[in-house]
């Protein structure tokens, strides 16, 4: 059982590194290159939508977190407001962690979209195939890790 969990944690660590490096490269490329081609620009926008967990307001994951943290005059207010303000901050960080976890869980989806982007120019087919691949990957992981057994 411990080995099963270890394997899953290893896989998610690789996924996490993949997310971070994609975000880094997507942030850095527009900074170093002034004349990006239209093709690359649309690809960068597509990947930004995929890699950042876009909320209802169109904010990215990090934007939501940064906006959720500040509470003005938190220690100069009444006792009740101070108490509630601290709870708001804790809730913002919990929300961030949950969204981050969801973001890491859909990495097979993102990977399949990137691999198929050159061949299929249709976002509907891409997202559907991504969901299929996501379900397939997790059933595969379940089968390999729990059924076949890493004891």
């Amino acid at each position: 059982m411990a080995n099963n969990i270890k394997t899953i944690v290893k896989v998610f660590m690789i996924f996490f590194l993949f997310q971070i490096s994609l975000s880094a490269i997507l942030t850095a490329i527009p900074l170093i290159n002034n004349d990006i081609s239209e093709e690359d620009k649309s690809f960068i926008l597509f990947l930004n939508d995929k890699t950042n967990f876009i909320g209802t307001d169109g904010n990215t994951l990090l934007d939501d977190f940064v906006q959720g943290m500040p509470n003005e005059g938190i220690f100069n207010d009444t006792l009740l407001n101070t108490f509630l303000g601290i709870y708001k901050i804790i809730a913002a960080s919990i929300k961030f962690i949950i969204e981050l976890v969801l973001d890491i869980l859909i990495v097979p989806n993102i990977m399949m979209s990137i691999l198929l982007y050159n061949f299929i120019g249709n976002s509907t087919i891409l997202s559907v195939s991504g969901i299929v691949v996501n379900i397939g990957f997790y059933s595969f992981l379940y089968y390999i890790v729990f059924k076949e057994g890493i004891r």
Partner: peptide
């Protein structure tokens, strides 16, 4: 000079890494 191709090759390598980690864990046990 093509972001798509750079990220494509990188992603393919990530997939290989994931499956190699799972395979190695199975072999070790």
């Amino acid at each position: 000079a093509n972001v798509q191709l750079v990220i494509f090759i990188y992603t393919a390598f990530v997939g290989l890494c994931v499956f190699s980690v799972i395979q190695k864990d199975k072999e070790e046990v």
